[in-house]
């Protein structure tokens, strides 16, 4: 489904991604963790072309992103993304946020798009907030709207970029519950997070990144109970008390 092949990227002289290789199968959930500045978010944004890269390739369903004739707009319709800071459109209601892309990209009539948006709001458990603007929603509610917005395009893959790290602690669970549901429904997911409870529950694979490289990978058991590298051990000690 997603193949990342020898991917390298520089910001100026600084190498943010260093020869990253990874394959994600359909229905798999991959969790990416690692210290800040290790290139996790950048890696995620390379997968839907929000960031470009200088070496290697990303292949989505057999389509190479390196190829200049690849239509990124088409690729992005297959890949939903959820951001750390939600990035809802502040001038639109929750419902409009969700219905916009189906209406403007897929040309679905407004009525139908809004009906579908309501169904998605129900799925993330906040139908009562449909007519509110993002500024009047709590962080947890905003992030759930953002997940619904990404799902509205019926993506085959969902990318999550630290979806809970800008949230107050008591709101983390409501967002994680939606994500766990999604994982269990068979969505292919790549999730940058430090929520190790989430990783233990649904991750098929956990990747540990540092300085732009994947330095360790494993299933939840092998990774948490028996990290091979000192760097990963050190990191886990710091985030698991």
């Amino acid at each position: 489904m997603i193949e990342i092949v020898n991917l390298s990227k520089w910001f100026g002289k600084f190498k943010v991604l260093d020869n990253v290789n990874e394959t994600i199968q359909r229905n798999q959930v991959v969790v990416v963790c690692g210290p800040s500045g290790s290139g996790k978010s950048t890696l995620l944004k390379c997968l839907n072309g929000l960031e470009d890269f200088q070496q290697g390739d990303v292949i989505i369903d057999g389509v190479s992103l390196k190829n200049p004739t690849t239509d990124l707009i088409k690729i992005r319709q297959k890949i939903g993304m959820v951001f750390q800071r939600f990035e809802l459109y502040p001038h639109m209601t929750a419902l409009e946020n969700i219905a916009l892309a189906p209406m403007k990209v897929k040309k679905i009539p407004r009525e139908e798009a809004e009906k579908k948006a309501m169904a998605l709001l129900e799925r993330v458990g906040i139908t009562d907030q449909a007519q509110k603007y993002p500024g009047n929603l709590s962080g947890g509610q905003q992030q759930r709207v953002a997940i619904a917005r990404a799902l509205a395009m019926e993506p085959e893959i969902m990318l999550f970029d630290e979806p809970t790290s800008a949230l107050d602690p008591e709101m983390i669970k409501e967002v994680l519950d939606v994500m766990i549901d999604l994982a269990k429904s068979g969505m292919t997911m790549m999730v940058v997070t430090h929520e190790m409870g989430f990783a233990k529950e649904v991750a098929d694979e956990i990747i540990f990144m540092d300085q732009g490289r994947i330095i360790e990978r494993g299933t939840d058991k092998t990774f948490f109970e028996n990290p091979k590298t000192d760097r990963a051990k050190d990191f886990l000690d710091k985030i698991l008390f």
């Binding site: 839907n48 707009i73 319709q77 890949i79 993304m81 990035e87 459109y89 001038h91 892309a101 403007k104």
Partner: peptide, 27 residues
């Protein structure tokens, strides 16, 4: 307008003109 708005719009498959028209310019 923060860059995240542009990225969010792109990530849902909106192209540049539509992102400008519906997301960036109104704000």
């Amino acid at each position: 307008i923060p860059k995240g708005q542009l990225q969010a719009a792109y990530s849902t498959g909106l192209n540049y003109p539509k992102t400008m028209r519906y997301i960036i310019i109104p704000q």
